[in-house]
Write a protein that binds this DNA or RNA. Structure first.
Lengths: 228, 228
DNA sequence: CCTTGTTGTTGACACTGTGCCAACAAGCTC
DNA sequence: GAGCTTGTTGGCACAGTGTCAACAACAAGG
């Protein structure tokens, strides 16, 4: 008799298991609405007992928050966009950066930042708002308009508002396909330029002249980023 | 013995009862997130048995959809904004109309159109998207850019994107107070003008010249835009 | 005033999904 | 292999929801 009984389950490192569950959860939350994803589903997907989810993440809501955080961490945040050239050039590179990072997340991003799903959870709003803040600061930095953090809440608020435009536009692009990537690029670029130029007039000077190049519209410097 | 026993509950017309419940539900959904509002709470608030809610509205989700619909009906949609004057004047009147209608709803509006609450329910998204469509068409009409419905999906999509900016901006204004009403007005006006002028160039001509009033904001020649 | 019929309303039922926790077992060390 | 650590399981209790037969408020007819 072979005494080597096959173990009924595999024993993993906490971090590994956590990451695995997080990945399955992210996928499911991207496929169907929050309420339609039971913890049982996630556990089944991860090949794990349901109780383990609570053990690692506490409440289901907490798991969801972790998923949101993980996604909004914005991987690729470090690949600096060189802030040279005219304001328009820099704006368009920033927009391309937006579109690229989002393209990698696809459905899940749209689901998480969804327009007005069921709920409006204050905690989720806070997290998304923070992420918007980070992205905003980064954008301002790309544009050469970096203002010290926490100083001008008004500018940051306006950039969060702009983030609302970005997300809505991306939603039109990814979900319905009612806008092409070029349309999204155009809309977001023009809007951002307007904001910087007309709403932050004093900063615009510091940023240098708008023109100085020929503006290559469609094809921006596409980072070789492919899905999955 | 006084035979007149006081009735244990009042018997109302279905429409009246429906409206009453709807009102209570709207209030509660505006105060706390969807998941934290139990049907029991709503029933208690309305002084009614919980089962009655299901009898009138079916599922809790359906009740929520009714609340959203009721709110996005946009009362005051009929008070036409005279579409005279320069493009800028018309844009600013449209923006004022936006801000006014929203100001009446306050918290509940912010909650319903919340940035990314828990869920992203496709049905809710559809309803909000439809409401955005209506508001967009109305806006285009105000601007004298009315295009026949269903014709140019691209323009409508972009206006829905703009609606994303509107909602995010309003959120900053109403919720956090990080933006003043004047800030919101400025941001939304400039953005809308840009969209109409630079993204819908062919329509812009049909809309007439932009200027005709003073209001040239800060920086000088914003007309120096020819590309595209 | 009592009877009868209609129907708005109630209260209890079963069911699903969640959070919790003690018991179990996989894998390491000696 | 014995003993220990701890990642993992399975079942329990509970809250929230959807359903439905029975009830009671009100109107109409005698």
């Amino acid at each position: 008799m072979s005494s080597a009984e096959a173990p009924r389950w595999k024993r993993l490192e906490p971090d590994t298991r956590r990451e695995q569950i997080l990945e399955c959860a992210a996928r499911l939350f991207g496929e169907r609405p929050y309420a339609d994803v039971s913890t049982t589903d996630i556990a089944l997907e991860a090949g794990v007992a349901r109780g383990l989810i609570n053990h690692y993440f506490g409440q289901k809501r907490d798991l969801y928050l972790k998923v949101v955080k993980r996604m909004l961490l914005m991987p690729g945040l470090e690949e600096n966009v060189p802030m040279t050239g005219s304001l328009r050039q820099r704006v368009e590179r920033s927009v391309e950066w937006y579109l690229n990072t989002v393209a990698t997340h696809g459905k899940t991003y749209v689901a998480v930042t969804g327009s007005g799903g069921i709920g409006s959870d204050p905690e989720v709003d806070r997290i998304i708002s923070e992420a918007d803040d980070v992205a905003s600061s980064k954008t301002l930095e790309f544009l050469g308009l970096k203002v010290e953090v926490g100083s001008d809440v008004r500018h940051r608020a306006m950039m969060r508002s702009y983030a609302g435009l970005v997300k809505a536009t991306i939603r039109e692009w990814i979900r319905g396909g009612t806008l092409s990537r070029e349309d999204a690029h155009l809309l977001l670029s023009e809007a951002l330029i307007t904001i910087v130029r007309d709403v932050f007039p004093q900063l615009a000077q510091q940023a240098g002249p708008e023109r100085g190049d020929a503006k290559a519209p469609k094809t921006g410097p596409k980072r070789g980023r492919d899905e999955k």
